[in-house]
Each structure stands twice: as structure tokens, then as C-alpha cells.
Amino acid sequence: MSKGKVVTIEDRIPKLKQKRKQKANKRLIWYISIFFLLVMCVVYIQSPLSKVSKIFISGYYNVSETEIIKLSELSKETSFFRINIENTSKQIETHPEIKSVSVEKKLPNKVLIKVSEYKRVAYISNEEQYYPILENGQVLHSLTEATIPSDAPILINWLNNDDIQDMAKELTKLNPSIANSISEIHHTPESSDPLHITLFMNDGYEVSATVRNFAEKMSAYPAIISELDPSLKGVIHLEVVSYFKAYEREEDEESESER
């Protein structure tokens, strides 16, 4: 049996001392790094860099940037590290037109806010005032602008809130391209149909329909007008059976009056 090499204690002592020295050096470097990191943190907190320098907001349309910043309660005096993302999001979501909010802190001191708004599906016209109706059925306060809104249909002669809610739900289901082609929706109840409506389209046509299954019936509108003579305008009936009835021409009316 072969014998292993014998290492004396005198030979091992230098190596042990070297290892201990290396460990001590590593520990010292670690302590120094932590110290400088703490110093940098203190300097950062005490400097203007620790305050919010810029707030970037995206996704807003009807709600102004100023309103969103005011709701967030953030400013250039706000400590970047004291921002509570959850609380800030909840504060912004208190606005009736805001559906959801995403808040992100980006080093060194920027805040990104992305909002998603409820869509305005229509406006109620009342005494020259226009009240936005959101996709969730909520009716807002009247607009402060004097101009007539053009981004959604205008509801005229609507008095019953339940009827308004039903109409809003149908408009939400409607294809955006079709909804954008509607100028006005008049509530024109009939004895046989209290939910009868008359639409005036941006392309000059008139539509006679009902609130019940309105979105489903109205989805056929593009196909219907594609088959009509563009020079003829009239009423497109969508109540039970879909059909088109042209307006009587002035010449026809004059010839009938002469008879």
C-alpha cells in the first residue's frame, strides 16, 4: 500500500494566512461597497433627482391631461419613492369617464400613466345642452363647449331613462363605422311600438327602426345602401322586413297637385 504525501503544519500556515487575508479583503470590499451605496442613496434622496421630474400620460381623449394629473395628486414636489402606485391608480379611476389606469415608475424619477376611457356612444340633446352617454350607460353633466358634438350620434326627444339605457346598450354593440355614420336618433314612439326611432344618417338617408335588436338590424345598413341608387334618397325601414322607400320628388308632387 502506497503512502500519501505528508504536509507539515509549517507548510500549511502560509496558505491559511493567505486565505484568511483574501476573505478579509473581500469582506472589506463588501463593507465599502455597502457604505458608498448608502451614501449615494442619502445623496439621491436629498437631491432634486429624488423628486418627480416628468409625468407622461397616454390614452386620454375626452379627459384632459390636467384633470388626470390633478386626480393623481402628483407634482414635481412629490417624492419618487413615496409614490403608491395602487393608490394613485384608484384616485385617477374616480373620474367617471376613466375605465382603467396603469401607473409605472421609471428610474430615475419619471412616472408613466396610461388611461383607458369609457367610450361616448351618444349625446342627449336638451334645451341646446348636450349630455354625453358612456358605453356603461352613465349620463354625464352637459358639455361646456358651445359646439355641437360630432363624435357620436345625438339623441333627440328622449325622456325615459330606461329607454336611454337600452339605446346606449345597442349603440355599444354597433360596429364603430356604422355608429359614426349616424347623425341623429329621434325617439318617435308609435302606438304599436313605443320604442320606435327615426335616424338621420350623414349620407342623407333616413332610417325607421326600433330599439329592440337595433344593433343586429342596423348591421345590414352598409349592404343595403350599396345596392341603392346614390341619386335617390329616402327611408330605409328596418322594423320587421327591411325595405327602402324613396322620398317623393317635387315634380311628382306638383303633377299630382295639378290633377
Rank of each mutant, 00 (worst) to 15 (best):
I197E: 00
F200I: 12
F200N: 13
K245Y: 07
E190V: 07
L199P: 03
R212I: 15
I224E: 02
P222I: 08
E206L: 07
A209K: 03
M218T: 08
L228P: 06
I197K: 10
I197W: 02
H237F: 15
F244S: 06
S231E: 14
F244I: 02
G204H: 06
L195E: 10
K217R: 12
Y243I: 04
Y243G: 01
L228G: 00
L228Q: 03
P189V: 08
E227W: 00
M218N: 01
E216Y: 13
L238I: 02
S191R: 12
L238M: 13
K217L: 04
M218E: 07
F244Q: 02
K245P: 01
P222C: 06
D193W: 09
F214E: 02
K245M: 12
T188W: 04
T210G: 14
V235K: 10
L228T: 07
L228H: 05
E248D: 12
K217W: 03
A246P: 14
E248Y: 09
K233L: 11
Y221H: 06
N202A: 06
H237I: 08
V241K: 15
K217I: 01
R212K: 15
K245E: 14
E190P: 00
T198R: 14
Y221A: 09
T198K: 11
G234Y: 06
D193R: 11
G234C: 08
V241Y: 07
Y243R: 10
A215P: 07
F244K: 05
A223Q: 15
E248P: 03
M201G: 00
V207C: 06
E190N: 10
V240D: 11
Y243L: 00
Y205K: 00
Y243K: 04
P189E: 05
D229P: 03
V240Q: 10
S219F: 10
S191E: 14
A209Y: 05
T198M: 10
K245C: 08
H237Q: 01
V207K: 02
V240L: 11
K217H: 15
Y247Q: 10
F200K: 15
D203K: 08
M218F: 13
E206K: 11
M201T: 01
S242W: 01
H196A: 14
